[in-house]
């Protein structure tokens, strides 16, 4: 058999036979196996002289190599075809819905608290908390609100007994922090947490609510620094192009006391329903710590001064996300909750 002939024969078989990997392997055995034509040539070789033996040997090797190469190529081709077929058979409709895993969420009030916490941690503050069932002393007296003070009427209080009450403001934590620090070190804290007022629940009032108090006490802290701090917060919460304005107000624990407005982020100061046409929205109360508070908490007002502010977290959340009824923050309709990731 000649090389050309073998090649022609194999290619013809490849063409005429519908081969798969199995039949290809059988065909290969026919050509290259012990009873195949190439092997037969070798059998004939025994009887040939040495000179011819070598010539024939070379020929047989060449034939073997050729057949092997052809079969290997064909095998690769078939394998590829086979893989394509398999892949084709595994086809899916990628637009079918994925596994539905319940969409988890973080409560909007937690979101807002964490956002403000992170902002103030970045400015060197620590986060403090205290009891919600509080003593009159910490909630009122140490904050310069003695019994019979008119400011008590501003905050209707749930009382537990003659001494204890549900804190009406997280400012109570201020007094704890200052009074309980034996070394009277500088203070730089924020205190987020639940507070309580004896109010009937309606769209804007909740008998339980979340407040974040901030307090800085050191030898030099000034009202300009309070303004800068509050401006940073307003920008972080409501957008970089926000401005703030301060108006006189009254809190027994600060003097001077201010209300803080942020320029309306909806109309940018032109006046709209959100800001009731004024271009400004009230967001918090603040002031310089009243000397009586410093004194009662063991800080010498001749040396120390401080600023404090209190933010209603619900109010911030409602303004920021357009929530109209404070009660929805506590009723937890998941269709609302799930919007906050």
């Amino acid at each position: 058999m000649e090389l050309e002939e073998l090649k022609r024969k194999i290619n013809e078989d490849f063409k005429t036979l519908k081969l798969n990997l199995q039949t290809l392997s059988e065909l290969r055995a026919q050509y290259l196996g012990k009873k195949g034509p190439i092997q037969e040539l070798l059998l004939d070789m025994k009887n040939l002289p040495n000179e011819e033996k070598r010539t024939l040997g070379e020929k047989v090797n060449a034939l073997k190599a050729l057949a092997t190469e052809l079969f290997e190529e064909k095998k690769k081709e078939l394998e590829k075809e086979e893989q394509l077929k398999k892949l084709e058979s595994e086809k899916v409709d990628v637009t079918l819905p994925g596994k539905e895993i319940n969409q988890g969420s973080i409560h909007i009030l937690s979101k807002v608290i964490e956002e403000i916490e992170d902002l103030f941690i970045g400015m060197g503050y620590e986060v403090k908390d205290g009891p919600e069932v509080e003593e009159d002393k910490f909630n009122f007296q140490l904050l310069n609100i003695p019994k019979d003070h008119p400011a008590r009427a501003m905050q209707d209080t749930f009382y537990v007994d003659a001494v204890r009450l549900l804190r009406t403001q997280t400012s109570a934590v201020q007094a704890h922090t200052m009074l309980e620090d034996e070394e009277k070190r500088d203070v730089r804290i924020i205190c987020p947490g639940k507070a309580y007022r004896r109010d009937d629940d309606d769209a804007t009032h909740s008998h339980e609510f979340t407040q974040m108090e901030g307090l800085v006490v050191n030898k030099t802290v000034s009202m300009s620094e309070l303004k800068g701090t509050l401006l940073s917060m307003a920008k972080a919460l409501f957008g970089e192009d926000r401005e703030i304005r301060l108006r006189p107000s009254y809190f027994p624990f600060t003097e001077p006391s201010i209300e803080v407005d942020v320029s309306c982020f909806k109309c940018h100061g032109k006046g709209c329903a959100l800001c009731k046409g004024t271009g400004w929205i009230e967001i918090l109360g603040a002031g310089m710590v009243n000397n009586n508070v410093l004194k009662m908490c063991g800080y010498d007002p001749n040396i120390y001064q401080g600023f404090a502010f209190g933010v209603g977290i619900e109010r911030i959340a409602m303004l920021k996300y357009g929530i109209e009824d404070i009660r929805t923050l506590y009723s937890n309709d998941l269709r609302q909750n799930k919007q906050f990731k």
Partner: peptide, 28 residues
Amino acid sequence: QDLIEEIVRIDGYDKLDAVLPKSENVGK
């Protein structure tokens, strides 16, 4: 402190600069 409040409100809170307090604390 009451007098300082009178001064700052009549002068105008808008006259105050807005600056951040320096911090030596690491907040955490």
